[in-house]
Simulated assay, not measured.
Amino acid sequence: MQPTSTVDRPAAPPAPNSRTFARAFGDVRDAWRQRELWAHLGWQDIKQRYRRSVIGPLWITISMGTTALALGLLYSQLFGQTLSTFLPYVTAGFIIWNFILGVITEGTEVFIANEGLIKHLPAPVTVHVLRMVWRQVLFFLHNLVVYVIVMAIFFPELTKPYRMEGDDFLHPGLSWTALLAIPGFVLIAVNAVWVALLFGIISTRFRDIPPVIHSFINLVFFMTPIVWHVGVLNRVTGDEGGGSGDWRVLIAELNPIYHFVEIVRAPMLGHAQDWHHWVVVGGFTLVGWTLALVAMRNYRARVSYWV
């Protein structure tokens, strides 16, 4: 017999709550499981960009090599640096900076640029972030060709202890510690995901954020030790390497991008390892992922409406 009153009818299942950390974690987990999808899409992005080009993605390497060479030659003269150690420094820093720059600028528009896919492809929103980060990783790998060429030219000078102008200590030179660049870059890529998730969600809701970031990103480049070395901040008359120049180092130390660059660049060049860079990056990783998961918990379901 069918129930005749609402009291006798079975209760309807409660509506699922999309604003939970379990769903936020689930979105990231499901996106990782679909790595064949975003890896294929990221590779197709590069092929599409250079579809009718004769030399294809080699343009990435040529552009990077030309820029690094020009900046290295110019700033080595401006700051009185030895070219054999300063050009590899600029090259490595510029390659890492390019990866960070791409993640930040494209990360702010990652959901806006994928409006069509978000509305028609039933996939976790993190898929679009991983696709963008993977594309930047491929660009980074292409640019490493320039690093290999520069290191091959100046290899004899970099395998023995050497001093950067402005430093009061010797760097040990290239050794097996260069392998530390691998976990360093992995850590940067992990941070790239939360940066794109957090700023991508905010920028999708507030469309003024991407232009603001694009306006200030060039200033951040010149404030970061990419084409200049931290040692030059200590070069004051009669007190090179310390004393009244110490406060100037705060210009670099208070810049979080500097620490991200240094955990990869230092082992790539055989520089002395300063572990406080890893501590700072580790702190940003924990705080950043916490903020990103909070944003995912509260606003992940709204992204498809905001785009």
Rank of each mutant, 00 (worst) to 15 (best):
V133T: 06
G200I: 01
I55T: 13
L83W: 08
M268E: 03
W289R: 01
H40L: 13
Q2E: 13
P211F: 13
W228N: 01
Q77G: 15
V281C: 04
T224G: 03
H128A: 07
L130C: 03
W43L: 10
F25G: 09
P211L: 07
L293I: 06
L58T: 10
V232F: 02
A272Y: 14
T91P: 05
T91V: 14
Q273I: 14
D168H: 12
E157A: 12
Y89V: 08
W97S: 11
N98P: 03
G243R: 05
L73G: 13
F21Q: 07
R297P: 02
V103S: 02
L69P: 01
A252S: 15
L158K: 08
S203G: 07
A266L: 10
N143G: 11
A272P: 02
H171V: 09
A113G: 06
R51L: 13
L187M: 11
F222Y: 14
L138D: 01
A272N: 09
R135L: 02
H120F: 13
T204Q: 10
T85D: 07
S18I: 12
R297W: 03
S203F: 05
G231M: 02
S304G: 08
G116K: 12
I188A: 01
T82Q: 15
F185S: 06
G65H: 07
P122I: 05
G93H: 10
